[in-house]
Amino acid sequence: MLTFIIRRFLAFIPTIIAVTFIIFVVLNLLPGDAAFVRAAGFKRGVANIEGIAQLREQWGLNDPAYVRYFRFLGGLLRGDLGTSYRTDEVLSDVIKERLPVTLKLAGISILLAVVGGLTFGFLAAIHRGSIIDLVCMVTAIVGVSVPEFWVGLMLMLVVAVKWGLLPTSGYSSGNILFLILPSLALGFRYIGLIARITRSSMLDVASQDYVRTAKAKGLSLFSVRGKHIFRNALVPILTIVGLESGWLFANTVVIEEVFGLPGIGRLLVVSILGRDIPSMQAAILIMVLAFLILNLAIDVGYGFLDPRIRY
């Protein structure tokens, strides 16, 4: 097990390096001169040449691209993400401040999706062909067809504005109420997806030999469903959570925009609009890392759920 984790972790390294390379190339080809934009901002619209030259020197923009790339990589190794072109903030501090917001948002969404999806899928599989089954299937197909930000806006309109139950937007770190609507909007797609996969894999597992054996030796219905069917059906569910988490992390960008949450996604949008390359690099890199780490965790999780899977 441990060797598997270590091996998987080592396999990460070339991927991460390649990702940093792609991000660096794409973002450093950006048109427009960041130093010019910044200097122009200082002098109320008039950029003076010394100011620009000084900023270019300070940010190391005069060095050739490969030097800048290796400096970027070297910084990453020391946990140094650089400083923002726009605000001069140290980016590792900015990320430290914003990451919890995004992680909470994504975490609550996944939790809601897993709990909701499992419940609906479980009920749908037991009451096959019933109204619950139909609702579950419709939710599943609507969930993957609807834009998250629109679900967010509609939830805001009905729950926050019409009923006045929850705050419309904003964030305060101690108050979980601000995250409920965003998480529901972000998790909606996965509730349907997980319900659908739970249902079909439960029906699939129910026809396996070991389930028949369990029934034949006289285990109660509860025990058969809970221990045998449910546990085995978790494997494909875990797979879907891993595969789709990229979509989920990416969509925190839109959801944070809708609800005004100060997370990584918001940082990305603001820095794109402000041509702030170091901030963009940091935000994208953190998202890719989160996605890769979650998938590694899921690969490890397989072994615990299904003893037949060995590495």
Partner: peptide, 14 residues
């Protein structure tokens, strides 16, 4: 490993 929306965002910025 780069989510599509993020990749597309970066390309649109470029």
């Amino acid at each position: 490993s780069i989510p599509v929306l993020i990749f597309a965002l970066a390309l649109m910025a470029l």
